[in-house]
Amino acid sequence: MTYKFFTPSLLSRIGILLFLWLAFTALSPNFSSFSNVYSVFEGFAIAGLVAAGVGTTMLVGELDLSVGSVAAVAGIIAVQCTGFGLVPAVLIASAVALVYGLAQGWIIARTGINSLVFTIATLILVRGVAFAMTPTAVLMPMDRIGMSDFLIFRLFIFSPFSLTTICVITALGLFLGYARWGREMMAFGGARNEARAAGLNMRRPIIIAFAISATLAGLAGSLASIKSASAAPFSYEGMLLTGVTAALVGGVSLYGGKGTMFGVVIGVLILRVLTAGIASRGAAVYVEYLATGVILLLVLVVEFTTESPQRRAWSERRAFERQLAAVSVPA
C-alpha cells in the first residue's frame, strides 16, 4: 500500500501532544495522575464525537454549524426516553439526529446553498426546538438517576463513554478510508470539479457528511446528558468552537479532502490536554475560552500558509516564473 499513515504532519502533532503532556506534568505532577488522565479522556469523549462529525463535513468541503443545537435537542430527547433503558434512549436520540442530518444534507445538496449560511439558520431553529421542548427553560433532571452510574464506571483510564467514542471514531475512520462511499466523499472534498467530471454522485457525499455530523453530535449530546443525569436547552453552545478547533488542530483541511480521523483524535487530545492544563493552573473558565479562540486563529494561519489553494497557486506560479527565467537567460 502506497498510502502512508504516519505522515510528517501527523508525527509532529503527536510530538506536540507529548510535549504538552510532559510540560504540564513538569509544572504540576498531579497532571499525570490516574484521575486526571481519566478526566482528560472524559472531555475527549464529548469533544471527540463532535470534532469527528464536524471534521467529516469539513472533509467534503462544507461545514455544519448546527452541531451544538442538535446535541442539546438529542440530550433532552435521551433524558426523556430513559424509561426505555440506556441504550434505547441513546439510540432514539441519535436516530432523530440522523433523520435531521439527512434532511439538512439533502436540502444543502439539492439547493446548493452555502452550508455555512444555511446551518446558521438551522442552528437558530434547532436551539429553539430545544427551548420549546423544555418549557421551564431550566435543568431537566432525569427520572432514573442511577442510569448515569454505568457511564461513569471506570475501566482503567477509560469509561464506557470514552470507549464508545473511540469505537465510533475508529469505525468512521475505516468508513472514510476503505468503504466505497467513504472514498467517494474524500475524492469529492478534495477535487469537486474533477469528481463531477469523473461522474461521481454530487449529492450523496454531502448528504452522508451532514448525516454523520448530526448523528455524532446527537450521540455526544445524549451520552453527555445521561452521564450528568440532566439536560438543559442552553447547553453545548461551545461545542462548535471546540469541534472546529480540534478538527483543524488535528490536520483536517478547511479546503476539503485532507485529513484523517486519527488526526482528529490527536487534535482533540491536544486541545483537551491544553484546557485541562490551563485549568490545573487555576485559571478561570473564560481563560480556556480565550485560549481556544487564540489556538483556532493560530491553526487557521498555519493551515493557510501551508495548505490553501491560493498558496498552492502561488508556489506553482513561482515555479513557472523560475522555469521561464531559466529558459530566457541563455537566449
Binding site: L63, L65, L116, L240, L241, V244, T245, L248, L254, A284, Y286, V287, Y289, L290, A291, T292, G293, V294, L296, L297, L300, V301, F304, S308, P309, Q310, R311
Partner: peptide, 30 residues
C-alpha cells in the same frame, strides 16, 4: 487582513469572537 489573505471568514470570526469574549471577561472579571 486574515480574511483578505484567504482565510475562511466564518471560522476566523468564530475564533476571534471567542478570543474577544475571553478578553472582555478577563478585563471585567465577569
Amino acid at each position: 487582513i486574515f480574511v483578505a489573505l484567504g482565510l475562511n471568514s466564518i471560522i476566523t470570526t468564530l475564533g476571534a469572537g471567542a478570543a474577544i469574549f475571553g478578553i472582555a471577561n478577563v478585563i471585567t472579571n465577569s
